[in-house]
Design a protein around this nucleic acid. Structure first.
Lengths: 349, 349
DNA sequence: TTGTAAGCGTTATCAA
DNA sequence: TTGATAACGCTTACAA
């Protein structure tokens, strides 16, 4: 078994046809007679040839059929967020018209090993996560001349991007709370930057991640002076940590909490209940994302439902059309406000 | 801007050296004088050459630096399970010594679009999920002569695989319940096959997925006649659905439930509480996986802690060593029993 | 419908 | 330390 794998020219020789004919039989790009086709197939089977070597084909064609998805954190961490997994689902679907597969790439600043963003055989890239590191990744990809789409991040005007109306959506939720009569509100934010420091914000400028910044600014339009507390990630446990901080002092409890994600909101609710508070009677809580939080029942979160799958699909389709030569405009997706059972007027004491 | 991208020979010409010299400057595989090196780098920068084209390099080298990960379900669904995401994390780490990236591939039986398992430029493959479809995927990959590792599935003796001691581990949990005095037990299983039908099992033979089969058989060694109820997936909600079925009839409530995953167990617990039962006083529940179930507190699940990340890492390392020429033996990982607060002796009525 | 021939951009080998 | 040259395996004008 030390013989090398059969190539298309082996098959052609065996079938008694030229290589180009054999090639065409496999690609189907040119009609062939049934007889030669059969001969080629038979020869291929005999030699154990399973089809063109994708490496050679991609060199020749100038396409690999692979789209890189770039994360700025551990894959495990990224996938722990349902929004990300839904987006991946949509992305997979979106690039499928291209027949492309997704290559997981992590941009951790200094990748020693290959293939990194520098060397991966990708036809296009989708950048996710969108913090400050995004710029570097973007630079690498652009230098390589690879089409790129950015999801929820500011990439400069000439890069197609898929955006959410984070500012407006979050403002709507804040407005909802204000309309209910809340004045004493605390904001729980997503991570501020790659450091993921927990704690109260001294200034809104500390937030560097676009999503965080935008949602914060939306809330600020209604509650300019509400204290903001940063979480280190988007999870129920992080929300609970923030919630415990918020509800620690009975004297200074807010009447409502604006959480920048549903997972955070679920954690805040849990912390509230631990502190003996009833939601929404004692404290109202809003989330963001509109995901199904496994384990939150019977509460129905008041939240902004974002089209996570659509976001991924849009990114995938944008990539597909760039590869087909057009320059897609960015796409702005909108979130839908959903009133749930976790908000109510503040208790009048 | 209509000029094609610069190639290494453009760079060589610009720098006044041969292509082979330019090539080694980039690969670093052969020493070069500092002077030529600098000339080449300068020329590359001037021409906007960002390094060798990965497609050409991979053709020449016979390696793409990509490892395919094959799922048998929607990516979104697969990633909803923390065990999978942890495994992906480990996998990413395991292949990193190879410097490989992960290509997400879905084997949905009949992939029309490319690149599929048939055509993706992968150096090796890791098969996950392990149901009946596994066989087909395996066949495809083997025909291509690509090294493959199977995670938690029976692939025939000559395929390296990473296995868990599902049978023994589950038996240990069952034994724990029996030792506590439980006799009236119900088993909630993971999906039986690709159909994912919910409901009571007529016969254990209905289970086709290896993990399900093994965990069932472990429980059977202690409780040969316990009724088994199949869930349609591994989630809290699926567990709750099963739990509601189990606790529907107050006359026939078991004193303990063996759930084949932690998520299912969490759902069963929720259903029990909905039915006015207290865990573990009225009913004991065991899980499997040892993941952190966001939202389960204050309960600590009695469960089998599986090394999910290690499983992925082992698979990645196995792939790496196969690519380096050796034939790794399969690896058997063991689960650790963890007694939590969700099991207790049955209530003596 | 089939064949000829020219690359695709690299890297490995070997000689200088 | 550098250079000439031959693959790597395939696809696609273009010609027959």
């Amino acid at each position: 078994m030390s013989t090398r794998r059969a190539t298309i020219s082996d098959v052609a020789r065996e079938a008694g046809v030229s290589v180009s004919t054999a090639s065409v039989v496999f690609s189907g790009k040119t009609p062939t007679s049934e007889a030669t086709r059969a001969r080629v197939i038979t020869a291929a089977e005999k030699l154990g040839y399973t089809g063109p070597d994708p490496r050679a084909a991609s060199l020749r064609r100038g396409r690999s059929g692979i789209v890189g998805v770039v994360f700025d954190q551990h894959l495990g961490t990224a996938f722990q967020d349902p929004v990300t997994t839904h987006m991946m689902d949509g992305l997979a679907e979106g690039v499928s018209r291209l027949g492309a597969a997704l290559l997981l790439l992590r941009d951790d600043g200094e990748t020693i090993s290959e293939p990194s963003l520098h060397t991966a055989p990708i036809d296009a890239a989708v950048l996710i996560g969108c913090n400050t590191r995004l710029r570097d990744s973007l630079e690498i990809v652009r230098a390589r001349g690879i089409p790129v789409v950015v999801v929820e991040g500011d990439a400069g005007s000439d890069i197609p991007r898929v955006l959410l109306d984070n500012v407006e959506a979050q403002r709507e939720a804040a407005r909802h709370l204000a309309d209910l009569g809340h004045r004493d509100v605390v904001i729980v934010t997503l991570p501020l930057d790659a450091q993921r420091r927990r704690g109260w914000l001294g200034s809104d400028d500390e937030a560097r991640v676009d999503v965080t910044v935008d949602r914060l600014s939306g809330a600020r339009q209604v509650f300019p002076h509400a204290p903001a507390l940063a979480a280190a990630g988007s999870s129920i446990d992080e929300g609970a940590i923030a919630g415990r901080t918020i509800f620690a002092d009975p004297e200074r409890r807010p009447t409502a909490v604006i959480a920048q994600s549903d997972l955070l909101a679920a954690g805040v609710i849990r912390a509230a209940e631990e502190a003996g508070l009833e939601v929404p009677r004692d404290v109202s809580v809003t989330g963001f994302d509109g995901i199904v939080v496994d384990g939150l029942a019977p509460h129905v979160l008041t939240t902004l439902v974002q089209p996570a799958t659509a976001k991924g699909r849009a990114a995938g389709e944008a990539v597909a059309s760039m590869l087909e030569g057009s320059r897609p405009a960015g796409l702005d997706l909108t979130c839908a406000f959903r009133a749930g059972t976790t908000t109510a007027p503040p208790r009048t004491t």
